[in-house]
Design a protein around this nucleic acid. Structure first.
Lengths: 332, 332
DNA sequence: TGCATGAATGTAACCGGTTACATTTTGCTG
DNA sequence: CAGCAAAATGTAACCGGTTACATTCATGCA
């Protein structure tokens, strides 16, 4: 392996001069500089970044904990994370946790053990809970956010967005509205449910909890839940799904039952994934700036790492937009 | 920072004993072992992995170059990579390259500079081409594979798979079959096109190149290309899309034209992404073991890294399966 | 010419583990 | 109890950069 000593020897200078030529060329005399650069070229020298990182105690890597990379929305968020990280000179270590807290704590250890400089968590769980009293490693919580997050957060006003969807359905004359929820115990699911109830309450309706079905954000779970709703004696005229993937599954199930969307049943989703505008019928949903979530999370995290004073307590609320497409129509 | 010397002091032993207690506990006497472990506990000691990696010249990280993480198929492949890497004790550094060769070469540098131990490339490009005569860093090329890959590869027999799809369409009586291609210059696109031609030739048909439209594997490009095909004087009765995302876009466009799938036009895709079975109509496609691509790639890469002798020249062909669903039917 | 000053360069400690080799301790046998 | 092998532990070099501090050298001025 060609190291800095070999280059120094080749150029007839000391290792310090080689290091300086590469890091602060202006304090090296032009003659020496050229000689060193020629030697670098000749030896095909690339600095061993492990040594650099070790010396500087900075890896310039960030750990990202993703519940499921298979989820199209998260894929977009990761795209944004990746883009901003690259721009700022950081790499990302992707960890697909499948929501397993033990795995998340293990991955979070990569920050404690200096494999990475910070962590972005896309789920509502603090993997550093158990870390005993020590200073918290740099972390940002985005997308699905803890209520009392001990770190900066980036999230949507899920309650307001869910309310907007529900109000849209109410305005179309729907009164019995089914709900396909996300995983239990999630603040995100809870907030979307609250927004849903807010809208019903504002319209003077009492919510019917028998129309709330559990799901897990995958198309099959939406399919199953919709089947459940359709089998009721008095099925809903509209279904609000907490994400688009479940909405796609639900629409499929409705058609399998011989019913049409939106003529017989309206369906709304959440996230505005790429397929939302290409499926049939195209999906009414809430558009979120997914990539922007990622970019913002990286930005906040690097603020902590470079310890900007005001960085620790930043909480960003990202904008949403109700996108009305073909899957919702007047109540029959 | 608590380091190994602090722990050694606390336990009243040498740093070597601490190191041995953690790495090879069996060669340390039980009494000392307990004392050291207690000190580790008390000090809250976590080994600095940067130091470990630096010393051992192994990062236990792998770089993954992915053309677009937004593509559902790649998301599954990455899932498989991540799973196998984790199982073998490696982390993955994800790089979303968007097909930019300059970026790919830059990321590949992470291996040359020891930020990672190896690289998985999911696109047909060798980011180490320019590296002058040196020994090639460990690399595996998967999914979209170079013809004369200088490393192990994992791929599908794209030609045979495309032929299978086309034969299915021919069997349904289709004679004018449109083709929506992937990006030019891609061996993958070329092979799928060859398989398509193989089937036509075997059926005694002469291919009509005017029915081949360019696309880029995204839904909008499929949408556009389908519009193009429909505007022909004599549009095709079936369209074979080189991936599912374009097929979704194409189906959308067909319905916008007031035509039905498959009654008026059949559509077939490639990849069998999650939505293929949930869209309307569900999509006839080629199922690929996406996660298995990822797992296999990691496996081969680690074989090279641990230099198993026979590792360098392995080429895996993964199985495919034609999945016939609702989007293809008899020619009208 | 002698000396001060600053620029250029060299020397070596350092980061925190690992491990070859040296040294000490333990346990066993005759 | 001597003597030896094996087990346990300690010492210090090492990985490859960075950088504080030391040293050398050139320049300008009195």
């Amino acid at each position: 392996m060609t190291n800095i000593r070999k280059v120094a020897e080749l150029a007839g200078v000391s290792v310090a001069t080689v290091s300086r030529t590469l890091k602060t060329p202006d304090i090296v005399s032009p003659g020496t500089r050229d000689r060193v650069l020629a030697a670098v070229e000749q030896a095909g020298y690339r600095p061993n970044l492990m040594a650099v990182q070790f010396r500087s105690q900075r890896t310039r890597n960030l750990v990202v904990l993703v519940p499921t990379i298979a989820n199209t929305f998260f894929a977009r968020v990761i795209g944004g994370i990746q883009e901003m990280a690259q721009r700022r000179g950081y790499g990302i270590l992707l960890c697909n946790t499948l929501g397993d807290e033990r795995a998340e704590r293990a991955y979070a250890g990569m920050v404690s053990t200096r494999q990475a400089d910070g962590l972005i968590q896309l789920r509502a769980y603090d993997p550093f809970t158990a870390s005993n009293g020590k200073t918290r490693p740099p972390m940002v919580n985005a997308c699905e956010v803890l209520d009392e997050a001990p770190c900066p957060t980036v999230k949507l006003d899920n309650r307001a967005a869910a309310r907007a969807v529900t109000e849209h359905l109410l305005a179309l004359g729907h009164r019995r509205i089914g709900m396909i929820k996300g995983p239990r115990n999630s603040p995100l699911t809870r907030d979307r449910l609250l927004g849903f109830q807010d809208a019903l309450a504002a319209a003077g309706l009492t919510p019917d909890e028998s129309l709330w079905c559990p799901g897990d954000f995958t198309p099959p779970s939406g399919h199953r839940a919709a089947g459940d709703l359709l089998s009721r004696a008095d099925p809903p005229t509209a279904i609000f799904c907490e994400n688009d993937e479940m909405a796609m599954g639900a629409m499929r199930r409705i058609r399998e039952a011989g019913l049409r969307v939106p003529e017989d049943i309206s369906v709304a989703g959440f996230d505005d994934i790429a397929f939302a505008s290409f499926c049939d019928p195209s999906l009414t949903t809430i558009a979120q700036p997914a990539e922007e979530f990622g970019r913002e999370a990286v930005s906040l995290l690097l603020d902590i790492i470079d310890d900007r004073d005001d960085a620790a307590d930043q909480h960003r609320i990202m904008p949403f937009e109700l996108v009305v497409r073909e899957s919702t129509g007047p109540a029959s």
